[in-house]
């Protein structure tokens, strides 16, 4: 399915929080994936798998640390699909900040583009000459992220409905 980049970023940020990450790391996670989506990387189950991995918090904190220092983070060794792509998203953002090309063994990222050379993860990426107007997200992933997102929302109650939003019993004019 196709979603707007704004929707994608909002859902990813909240899903990360729902998965137990602090808001700030969720923001880094979301921005990195939006960078990928804007270059036509298809987001699939690997996104949720990454969030469910116990290492994801430390990995995100580590990649964010390198980005904070404007340094390249080492390519992960024998990464899962999710680790590979999220790491790549961070490098793409670094390339954008530095307005430079970054070369890795089988990848080149620049401020606006991404090139994979015979890489196995290329199944999720299609280079496109056309501007990318929407993010390509599998329906299953979108629904799974929503489940995480809903963990950040308070359960409904009549009292909350009346008191918390402030409107009276009659909203009608």
């Amino acid at each position: 399915m196709k979603v707007s980049f704004n929707e994608l970023e909002a859902r990813l940020k909240k899903a990360a929080k729902g998965a137990g990450l602090p808001w700030g790391l969720g923001e880094e996670f979301a921005k990195s994936l939006v960078w990928l989506a804007q270059r036509n990387v298809r987001l699939d189950a690997w996104v949720a798998d990454f969030l469910k991995d116990q290492k994801c918090s430390d990995q995100l904190a580590g990649w964010a640390y390198e980005l904070d220092l404007r340094a390249v983070a080492s390519e992960p060794q024998e990464p899962s699909v999710g680790e590979y792509w999220v790491w790549l998203g961070f490098q793409g953002r670094l390339a954008k900040i530095q307005n430079a090309e970054l070369d890795f063994e089988t990848i080149r990222v620049s401020p606006v583009s991404l090139e994979l050379f015979g890489h196995s993860e290329a199944e999720y990426y299609t280079q496109s000459a056309e501007p990318i107007l929407r993010a390509d997200v599998s329906s299953a992933l979108w629904n799974e992220l929503e489940i995480f997102e809903y963990k950040t929302y308070a359960p409904e109650s009549e009292a909350s409905r009346l008191k918390g939003a402030g409107a009276g019993v009659t909203d009608n004019d």
């Binding site: 602090p22 700030g24 790391l25 923001e27 964010a64």
Partner: peptide
């Protein structure tokens, strides 16, 4: 700050 936030990611936001 980077090292601080590595230890305390709850303050990144």
């Amino acid at each position: 700050l980077a090292s601080f936030l590595l230890q305390h990611p709850e303050h990144r936001h």
